[in-house]
Each structure stands twice: as structure tokens, then as C-alpha cells.
Amino acid sequence: MDSVQTTVERHRSSVRKWVRNRFGKWVNRRIPPAREVTLDQRRIFIFPSRTGLFFGCSLLVMLVAAINFENNLSYALTFLLATLFVVATLHTYANLSGLTIRAVRAQAAFPGQQSEFLVMVERSKQRDHYALYLKWPGSSEAMVNLVDEDSVKVQLHMPVDKRGWFHPGRLLVESTYPLGLLRCWTWIDLDLYALVYPRPLSSAELPGLATDTPDGAAAMVMGNDDFYGFRDYRKGDSLRQAHWKGFAKGQALQTKQYTAYADRSVWLDWELFAGMGVEQRLSHLCYWVLAFDERREEYGLRLPGVTIAPAVGEKHREQVLKELALFGIGDKSR
């Protein structure tokens, strides 16, 4: 008995999978992935919503009341609402039709974080669009109007996990405006990928720090980044760095000393973490990229087949992280 049930269950689930597969293929054919998608009749599906079915039931009750009371105005009102349902089909459809959904960008993120996906909804005609509902499976949801603006940016957040390119799947664009009786929707595949960096993994010390300076130490030179200490005032020292407050208290004139890390170039090298797995190496490198970036120190990256010269700054960091994220992964393959 039990086994029969599981067989049936398995059979059913395989049928469901087959149906879903077929549907997926069909949708793919009908709505191929693109950078921007303009919604037209090939893409828009429309069907009475749950509310619409409930409304239909209410209409049936009204019709029965009209018949039983032989009340012509009740008939009239029932028919008016029934045809309102029909007219609403067109309005609901029009609310979605002609919209252009454009993939803007996806924010890079670390595993476990939420990546921000930015899409733009544009209208082609000056018609007001209301209550456009957008959501990826598993993402946050958004409800937007297009009334005073011609386009609106929509931010959707979605957790990402694996290093590499993350594709959020098909975006659901849905509307039940104006009456909620009909649900008009489409699934669009946007050519939008979020970059997922390796998970940063701290290591206490950067083993065998590879720098340009021969001794390899993190040389400290006098600069003005951080207050470091005092030393006696010597002739030639800047008056502006003199410790006047101490002098006023009767101490000997002293000079304030500041430190800064010297212009040095750290190479974050694949070989620094020899003996570890690929992902672990990347994670450690990632951690150090962030560490150096925070200190605004220059760093370069050496991976097998990739070399990025030492530099500092946001763009540099992104470039380095991107290389780490995509190491060993073909471009935009999943």
C-alpha cells in the first residue's frame, strides 16, 4: 500500500516536473532573455484572479436574487457588474501592456548578503500605470506606480550564496489594477547578473608578505595620517607641528609626530596560501583585499593568469574582487 502510494507520488512529481520543464521551455521560447523587454500580447497572460472568482460567485448570488425576486433592476445591476468584469479585462491588460522593463544593474555582494537588483520600468505612452508588482522568486517585492514619471527605478533585494555570477531567475511583473478582478502577469528573463564575491575568511597574519621593498616589512615613515608621539623640537621642524600647548605649560617645545604607511605595494599572491583549497585561497585573498582597502594602502593581485598592478581606490578594489569572484568561472555561465 505504502509503496504503491510512493510510486504514485513519484510518478506525480515526475509528471509535475515534466510539465514545469515543458512550461519553462515554452516560456523561454515565448519570452527569451533580454536586456530590456517591452510587454506586448505575446508576453502577457491574463486570467481572473482569486478575487475575480469570488466576484463571479457574488454575481451568481445576485443573479439568483434577481431571478427569485423577478426584479429587473437587480438583473440590470448584475449584468452591469458582469460586463464591468469584461471591460476590466481590457483595462487590466492595458495597465501592463506597453511597459518596458529594463535591467539596470545588479550590485555585487558577498555570499549571505542581499544583492540589490535594479530594474527600470518605463512607459511608452503617457498613460498612467498603477500597482505594478515586481518580484523575483525569493526576492523582496515592490509595488510601483507610473503616474507622474515616465520611468521608475525599482530595487529588489535577494540573498546570494555562491561565488560567481548570480542570476535571479525570471522576474514576475504583475498587476490586478484597476479592479483586482483579473490578474495580468508575465515572467520575464532579464539579462541581469549579480557578481558574488568569495566569502572573506580572515587569517591572522599575511604569510610571507610579498612587497616591493626587499626587507618585506611594513615600513613606517613619517607622515600626517595618525598621531604617533612627540620628540624634541629640532631646528627646521615645522612650527605648525610644534606642540604649543605643552610649551605654554612650561614644557620644552616638542614636535608632534605623525605616521603614515609608506607608499608600498603589497602583492596579494595566489601562492601565499599554497596548500589550501581554491575556495579557501580566494576567501583569504578576499579578506586581505578588504583589509588593505580599508587602510587605503596599495595592493596588487596575482592569480594564475591574472595580474593586477598595485593601486588603491574603489575601482581598483572592485576590479580585484571581480577577478577573485570569477576565478575559474567562465563569463556569465551558471
Binding site: 438583473y75 440590470a76 458582469a82 464591468l84 471591460v87 483595462h91 484597476p178 479592479l179
Partner: peptide, 17 residues
Amino acid sequence: LAGVMLLQAVPLMLVLF
């Protein structure tokens, strides 16, 4: 909009009626 939709529904309503 509500008014426009109702007006658009009226002719069909009359036919049904």
C-alpha cells in the same frame, strides 16, 4: 476611471438585460 469603465459596461449590460 470608475465612471468610464461603468459607461463602457453599459451597452453590454443593456444587451444582456
